[in-house]
Simulated assay, not measured.
Amino acid sequence: MTIDRVAQARSFQELHKQPPLVLPNAWDPGSARAIEAAGAKAIATTSAGLSWADGVTDGGGLTRAAALAALRRIVSVVAVPVTADIEGGYGGSPAEVGETVAEVLEIGAVGINLEDSSGGALIDPSAQAERIAAARSAADAAGIELCINARIDTYFFGDPADTVKRAALYVDAGADVIFVPGLLDPVAIGALVPQLSRPLNLMIGPGAPTVAELVALGVTRLSIGPAITIGAYGLAAGAAEELLTHGTYTLLETAVAYGKHNNLLR
Rank of each mutant, 00 (worst) to 15 (best):
residue 2 T to M: 13
residue 7 A to S: 10
residue 9 A to G: 03
residue 17 K to W: 06
residue 19 P to A: 13
residue 19 P to G: 10
residue 19 P to Y: 13
residue 29 P to R: 14
residue 31 S to W: 04
residue 34 A to L: 12
residue 35 I to W: 02
residue 35 I to N: 00
residue 36 E to I: 04
residue 37 A to E: 09
residue 38 A to L: 14
residue 40 A to I: 07
residue 40 A to P: 04
residue 42 A to W: 02
residue 44 A to D: 04
residue 48 A to D: 01
residue 49 G to Y: 03
residue 49 G to A: 06
residue 51 S to D: 03
residue 53 A to D: 11
residue 54 D to E: 11
residue 60 G to T: 08
residue 61 G to T: 04
residue 64 R to L: 12
residue 65 A to S: 12
residue 66 A to Q: 12
residue 67 A to L: 09
residue 71 L to S: 04
residue 73 R to N: 09
residue 73 R to H: 10
residue 74 I to V: 13
residue 76 S to E: 15
residue 77 V to N: 13
residue 77 V to E: 15
residue 79 A to F: 14
residue 80 V to Y: 09
residue 80 V to N: 08
residue 81 P to A: 12
residue 87 E to K: 05
residue 88 G to P: 00
residue 99 E to T: 12
residue 106 E to A: 11
residue 111 G to M: 01
residue 113 N to V: 03
residue 114 L to M: 10
residue 114 L to K: 02
residue 121 A to Q: 11
residue 122 L to N: 11
residue 125 P to T: 10
residue 127 A to C: 07
residue 128 Q to L: 07
residue 130 E to P: 02
residue 130 E to C: 03
residue 132 I to Y: 03
residue 134 A to C: 09
residue 137 S to E: 12
residue 140 D to C: 05
residue 142 A to S: 12
residue 146 L to G: 00
residue 146 L to S: 00
residue 148 I to Y: 07
residue 150 A to C: 05
residue 153 D to Y: 05
residue 153 D to F: 08
residue 158 G to S: 08
residue 159 D to K: 12
residue 160 P to W: 10
residue 161 A to E: 15
residue 162 D to P: 00
residue 164 V to A: 09
residue 164 V to F: 13
residue 165 K to Q: 11
residue 166 R to E: 02
residue 171 V to M: 11
residue 171 V to F: 07
residue 175 A to K: 02
residue 179 F to I: 03
residue 181 P to E: 04
residue 183 L to C: 09
residue 189 I to L: 07
residue 191 A to F: 08
residue 192 L to H: 01
residue 192 L to T: 00
residue 193 V to K: 07
residue 197 S to E: 09
residue 204 I to A: 14
residue 205 G to V: 09
residue 206 P to Q: 14
residue 206 P to L: 15
residue 209 P to D: 06
residue 215 V to M: 12
residue 217 L to H: 08
residue 217 L to F: 10
residue 221 R to F: 08
residue 222 L to E: 00
residue 224 I to R: 01
residue 226 P to A: 14
residue 230 I to F: 15
residue 231 G to S: 09
residue 234 G to W: 15
residue 235 L to Y: 07
residue 236 A to L: 15
residue 237 A to Q: 14
residue 238 G to F: 04
residue 240 A to F: 14
residue 242 E to Y: 07
residue 245 T to W: 14
residue 246 H to F: 15
residue 249 Y to G: 01
residue 251 L to T: 10
residue 254 T to N: 10
residue 254 T to M: 15
residue 257 A to C: 07
residue 259 G to N: 13
residue 260 K to S: 13
residue 260 K to E: 11
residue 262 N to V: 06
residue 265 L to Y: 15
residue 266 R to S: 06
